[in-house]
Design a binder for these strands. Structure first.
Lengths: 265, 265
DNA sequence: CAGTGGTCTAGACCACACT
DNA sequence: GTGTGGTCTAGACCACTGC
């Protein structure tokens, strides 16, 4: 495929692996990486949809004309990146934000008690959802031009009826055309799950920049707190496949009864 | 070793894998996991020291009486956990905090400019280093009893001569006997690297709890800031092998020119 | 050149889930 | 039982490093 090592004495290894339009990939890469790219395309194109099973390893090996071990290594990496989920005896599935287990995969705020279930699910309140022109920072984060049309959502998350998170969310206008406050209100589940099912946009990874700030008057009111109470400012950019930014959001977290948890390796 | 699958038609697979004192490991686990445990013991016992090369895959395969592929899978996992570092053509090495590349592996604070090198290395100032009795929270984090003897270090990190981080660090007294302010001052490199070379304690992973707070008078003075400037409170517990906590620290981060960066997957 | 990790294959068998 | 992913082996060859 595309490029192969200069000489390969293994007959099958040099084989075709299926057409696939890759106009120019000059650098050499191992077979399993090339299979990984092809599988990524199947995910991206929607051939394999969130929560659905992908073909078995044996089928994929036949399709790509490689050994099962090579397919396995490609799947291993995709699973490590949380794009696929392996289930022994059942198959390999496309990961989704709609799984009942980890309700909010990207939300790292936990109650001091440590028991996530004690406070139950978050109550969501949509404050606003309107079409605006992208400010400079939003445009930069989303890879748009300043002034391009974006959707802005403002909402409050409460735990045990206590307002705890105030979020402003910006989404590129084109892929999310048709998103309204009503649809956000009506949907029961994580916002990212709605993005998957309604707009075909799957968030794959994200980066957060965290600071400590003091809230302004409006923020105080919405979070029912005082201007002297410091908050965590969590600025997140979320990416789909191919490192395409698809969401920018700024969250203000009240951390008197909750904390932001991070694990370092 | 210890336990093996009920029946294994593969001659070698059921083999000994070397003595190794594991009194009771009742549950079944795959071979490569067992090899991983043995390798972990070699790391923990100091047989393989930080930055040194471990035996080659072929040697290990012979030592453990398994195939190279099985050793490889064990190493793969240890490398994924940042305990080992693979270098093609050279060998596999024990990871260390003294590598010149990632100076502070656990420090997630970056300058707004994004260019880590623009401000050069951090200036460290040891404020204090004394033996104290563990408070309740420190004792809990370190798995000690309240009142047990611990070392407390207080220091300030500055970037481009601007004080930015104020840290209180607590270390269990016994493993760190002999640590003084002078030795901390004289050592040129990350504190965790000193722990490795001088005390044989290698930090493997850590957890952080982050909050927004306002500083008290003393903290303001040390960071040369005002009581109205909110700070990030970063409480870290660091662990050695076997999930043994070996350090508790609370850092106060000034986030007007820096931000805490986190990557979500 | 020899030695190391990295890739790839082919085949056997195990563990698990469904039917 | 059938089919899925998971483990293990044995052997070949490639890519990189350093002598």
């Amino acid at each position: 495929m595309t490029t192969t090592p200069p000489s390969s004495s293994d007959s099958a290894a040099t084989g075709g692996v299926e057409a696939g339009a890759l106009p120019s990939t000059p650098a050499f890469s191992p077979l399993y990486q090339q299979i990984k790219v092809l599988m990524l395309q199947s995910l991206q194109s929607g051939e394999w949809k969130p929560s659905a099973a992908i073909p078995s390893e044996i089928e994929l090996a036949a399709r790509f004309r490689v050994s099962q071990g090579t397919v396995r290594k490609a799947i291993d990496e995709l699973a490590a990146e949380n794009l696929l989920v392996r289930r022994q005896g059942k198959g390999t599935f496309v990961a989704t934000h709609a799984e009942q287990h980890v309700q909010y995969r990207f939300l790292k705020l936990f109650p001091d008690s440590g028991d996530v279930n004690s406070e139950g699910p978050a109550q969501r309140q949509i404050i606003d959802c309107k079409r605006v022109r992208a400010a400079a920072d939003v445009a930069r984060a989303l890879g748009l031009r300043q002034g391009d049309s974006v959707l802005q959502v403002r909402r409050v998350l409460s735990f045990a009826k206590v307002p705890t998170i105030l979020e402003d969310i910006w989404l590129p206008g084109t892929p999310f055309k048709g998103l309204t406050a009503e649809r956000l209100r009506d949907y029961d589940g994580p916002m990212y799950a709605l993005f998957e099912t309604e707009f075909g946009v799957r968030m794959v990874r994200a980066e957060e920049k965290i600071r400590a700030i003091l809230p302004d008057a409006e923020q105080c009111e919405l979070l029912r707190t005082s201007p002297q109470t410091p908050l965590l400012s969590v600025e997140r950019t979320a990416y789909t496949y191919n490192d395409t930014p698809m969401e920018m959001r700024r969250g203000l977290y009240l951390t008197d009864t909750h904390y932001y948890r991070n694990e370092l390796n």
